[in-house]
Amino acid sequence: MNFVLFGATKGMGRALARLLAERGERLFLVEHCIDELEASARDLETRGAQLPVRTAQCDLLAPATFAPALEQAERELGQIDAVIVTAGLFATQDQLERDPELTARILTADFTNTVLFCEEARKRLLARGGGTLCVFSSVAGDRGRKPVILYGAAKAGLSRYLEGLDHKFRSRGLKTICVKPGFVKTGMTAGLKPPPFAGTPDNVARRVLRAIDGGWPEVYVPAAWRWVMSVIRRLPRGVMRRVGF
């Protein structure tokens, strides 16, 4: 299959791209930093991706770059079968409360611009009769929680959008997969104290790959977070006001 990956140079995206490479898939990478793109492309080629792995510049903070990057991907690959979006920004609630500019950037990147990118991808996938759109949201969007109010709000919006896409377009062949990672040990979370059930990029990637193969509309990673969040979603407000998570 032909995959376009947005954000595969780091963390969970990197791990997922490596699994796809080991299966011998055809990959196309998009992101903003050319040096990182090239290094990751060579890494994936060494690990077994179909040669060559090509790349295009695409900046999550610059929506004007989305359509040209996907166009180039379509030209190089012939046809796009699946688009995987792991790109996103993160900041702690403390940082965001202090810095409105950073808040605007995170909300724009993680909600507005991610949705705009997905819209571009959706149109192209539907035009060829469907495919897979796999997007990384977060468990942070499942409930308004003290440590992730702003980041979680953006991810909540993204999760709803993805849910709607799945409802509307599944019958037309477009499988939308909303990935909800809990705490995963990556560069993004380096230095934060991992809670119980923290995952690693590798086991997240293995599970997401099963979700992509099986067309699951929603997947929690690591799997235990599904049960954790189902409890948290049901906690009464009075409890949520008192607890720290």
Partner: peptide, 21 residues
């Protein structure tokens, strides 16, 4: 801490030369 820099940048199957981060 170098462990996030774990890419294999080039492998030549004829000579066995590998460049890695």
């Amino acid at each position: 801490d170098t462990t996030l820099a774990d890419r294999l940048l080039h492998f030549d199957r004829t000579t066995g030369l590998l460049t890695a981060e």
